[in-house]
Amino acid sequence: MIPAAFDYHRPKDIAGVLALLAEHGDTARVMAGGHSLIPMMKLRMTDVQHLIDLQDVGGLSGIEIGSTSIRIGALVTQAELIDHARLAIAAPILREAALQIADPQVRYMGTIGGNVANGDPGNDMPGLMQCLNASFTLAGPDGERQVAAREFYEAAYVTARSDDEVLTAVTIPMPAGGHAYEKQKRKIGDYATAAAAVQIVNSGGTCSSAAIAMTNLSDTPVFSEAAGAALVGSSVDNAALNAAVAAMLEDIDPTEDNRGPVAFKKHAAGVILRRAIERAWSRA
């Protein structure tokens, strides 16, 4: 649990970050809270020769709640997400999910930017961002670009971000309707055995839109368009729930680990999704 030697950089602005990334290429990594990256370095599973600490970089913090969207700086911590009163009203699913991440000590350090950028399939925020149809702002040598969360994740730890880019912000369209983030885990601090993010709109007793994403049930977060579609137009009755679960099961691809065999994970995923939909619908 001792990392190999590395150079530590602490630039003051994004330009400085980008210059370091341009100079050192894939031997450099940016660090926000460090709660994913540092354990990997200590285990010597990641070779980082240049660690770029973002904490002095301006413009990466803050939560801005607009009329149609919410912008969250990459360095906003899980604790800040939880404590933000207006965010809890505008997008309560963020608070509900963040409260289920790790423990308070980790949440004081862990950031939303690090959580979504790292590409760890166990992280909770990526699936949630897919559910909310968020987009990520990537700053690079050619300026900024936006990438949809639903397009961002390619494989475990592989994302649409290039080595010379840094994720600076998350933008979420103002969520509508009811929400739920349901997570089964073995203990505090564990990744999900199965987790489901659901945002659903009730128009006079009929579901008019539904977004569903699952966490830690594949090598990327899984946005299940078909599961959401199975609910739209229904009264979210038992048949619709069954259809949504069946559609979701087609989209996930869990692997066996210490949390259990594939059959159990699929069963748990179904139960967790059903509960998430029911809770979200009750709030819609």
């Binding site: 073995r186 055995t193 259990g260 059959a263 159990f264």
Partner: peptide, 16 residues
């Protein structure tokens, strides 16, 4: 008796 093994008990006893 962790989650999956309890699930397995239930499964073997036909509770699913």
């Amino acid at each position: 008796h962790d989650h999956w093994r309890i699930w397995q008990m239930a499964n073997k006893l036909g509770l699913h």
